[in-house]
Design a binder for these strands. Structure first.
Lengths: 348, 348
DNA sequence: GTGAAAGCGCTAACAT
DNA sequence: ATGTTAGCGCTTTCAC
């Protein structure tokens, strides 16, 4: 009664050829479109292939065409960082569209491990590599990757020949600070990181410029730096929020720092958003949706950045020219995610 | 002056053979150990291979041996979930030890996407698959994976023939409740999830049993359920912590729920750990290290589970027998991570 | 202990 | 428009 338990080997191109009554060459071309095939023949081939559930063996095809249909994604904390997830998803999706497979490796912040992983990717003859960082920063492409198409993700290189996809840091600041301005805030503080990265520079610059554009003079006392974790943010914000001319709203570098500001505000009996408006960046739901009230923040275009990076690296691989004048470096905009941490200032 | 810019093609086995003055057959055997090779010959071959930086092309070798040197890791939220990261790392590491490459795919909780991804893995002829869930739960192995060695990770099957690696849920409860008991607590509550999964059952059962073993009668009012997010935990804990016979310590199902308990405690002016001790499970540093005080929690053996799963699936692949009597299903213990959220009860 | 040659499943000349 | 065949880079008979 039951189906035969025999494990049938996967059908090969010969099985399809036989079933369709043509040569393997014709099957190959009918499926790849590499040369013209009579419509009726193609029809037969496609049907036979579908019936048999034929899928070309990438090892054989790759051996011949010198491809692996594998795209590597290497990064410092590609998997462990919450920021990473959407990048991996975006890359995964884009790679799948090309019929390839994404191999995402997490180097855990260990340069030696990273070098070994690049070695694995090379050993497996990956077609291309997307080289990512968890926070927008400057990097050099490892020499070991010199032979492959490489695109940077959430990272910039001083070599303009290396394509890269990053968030538009200035626009992030403009988005969040603009949102606070629109609510009527004038004393808007920024809690930023001490890290010297394009992410920090860009957001700080955007903060200053957006205020200036609104006719608000820069006030040194409203820009505060701390290490990039919640504990440091809380400690930095504690005295800051106790001062007389304290800000009525704080634009935080990221959600983790915003959480520290929540804690400091609570310690002072300040109610968010009544007494203090707070914004984050990143939209880590584990934090932004869990805080009370929910944190208004910016969702970074991680998914889109990764999609673009993969598309670009595939263009390099296939030698296909990008649209004339298309930039090789792209800065994508973030999206405002409103929850409940922003309201007009108390005085209004 | 500078090195030639010519892109030298990767050396093949013939290059090694030529350099070593032997046949390709001998090179192959010297490198694989598949048959005896004179020591001095092997020496020559190894040196030549190393000099040339030769690494066998997995496509060619795999084509011949019907392997791909690819191991798939599929899961509902393999990348997006913070729980996942350590599993991916453990799997990555273990797979690398076998000279293979881990292909981790995130199905984003979408069964259709998952099926497509399994299709990709099959198309690329992965050697084996680790099928994972983010929370320990029951699953059926997808029929599409029937032809491959499959091991479950953080999931159980009713089919005892399918090997699986899970956390020891009862032991987690024993660890955390035992820790609270050791501090002198007697009225220990549990805030658990409404989800019906082995993770929930096991921890609840472990909670009840550990209390019973300590001679404490089960009190229905001390076991509270809510949805698995911080907001729900806060709302559930709010009235619970206002009651007269409120617990002096709460064992939470995970860190997210613990965060909700922190919020509810703060709303009631209860100080942690002075008025209330709290423990979590998962050790999501984004939360556990960020809360004030730091959250005492359990680190799940994700990394070890993944390592075991990969080792097991490779054993299946190579047909190597596991140690006689070695279990095909394994439950690994968690580790206590002490921060600052536990202290003796106030009355002490 | 070593080598020659067939063949893994495809693709792409080179036929016709 | 279609077919024959060489060969991608390995592993593994088979022969010595």
């Amino acid at each position: 009664m039951s189906a035969s338990p025999v494990r049938r080997p996967r059908p090969g191109i010969r099985d399809v050829a036989e079933a369709a009554g043509v040569s393997v060459t014709t099957v190959s071309h009918a499926l790849s479109g590499a040369r013209a095939v009579h419509a009726s023949t193609r029809e037969k081939v496609l049907r036979a292939a579908a019936d048999l559930g034929y899928v070309a063996d990438p090892r054989a095809s790759g051996l011949r065409r010198n491809r692996s249909f594998l795209v590597g994604l290497v990064g410092d904390r590609m998997v462990t960082s919450p920021h990473a997830s959407r990048m991996v998803l975006g890359a995964q999706e884009a790679v799948a569209e090309h019929g390839s497979l994404l191999v995402a490796l997490d180097a855990e912040d260990d340069p030696e491990l990273e070098e070994r992983q690049i070695g694995s990717l090379l050993a497996h003859r990956v077609d291309a590599v997307v080289y990512a960082r968890m926070f927008h920063q400057f990097v050099e492409v490892p020499a070991s990757l010199a032979a492959l198409p490489v695109v940077l993700l959430d990272a910039s290189s001083d070599d303009p020949a290396v394509p890269s996809a990053v968030p538009d840091e200035q626009a992030i600041a403009a988005l969040m600070v603009g949102h606070l301005l629109a609510q009527g805030h004038r004393r808007i503080g920024m809690l930023t990181t001490v890290d010297q990265t394009p992410a920090a520079w860009g957001r700080e610059q955007g903060y200053v410029r957006t205020l200036a554009d609104a006719g608000i003079a820069y006030d040194d006392a409203l820009l505060l730096q701390c290490a990039t974790d919640t504990v440091a943010a809380r400690e930095a914000a504690l005295p800051w929020l106790a001062r007389d001319g304290r800000p009525t709203a704080v634009f935080c570098f990221n959600d983790q720092l915003a959480m520290g500001v929540y804690q400091a505000a609570a310690a002072h009996g300040l109610s968010i958003p009544r007494d203090l408006s707070v914004t984050g960046v990143d939209d880590l739901e584990l934090i932004s949706a869990a805080l009370v009230p929910g944190l208004t923040t910016a969702a970074l275009p991680h998914r889109e950045m990764a999609g673009w990076a993969v598309a670009e690296v595939m263009r390099m691989l296939t030698g296909e020219a990008s649209a004339p004048g298309a930039p090789r470096q792209i800065a994508l905009p973030a999206t405002l995610v409103e929850r409940g941490s922003v309201a007009p200032p108390a005085g209004q």
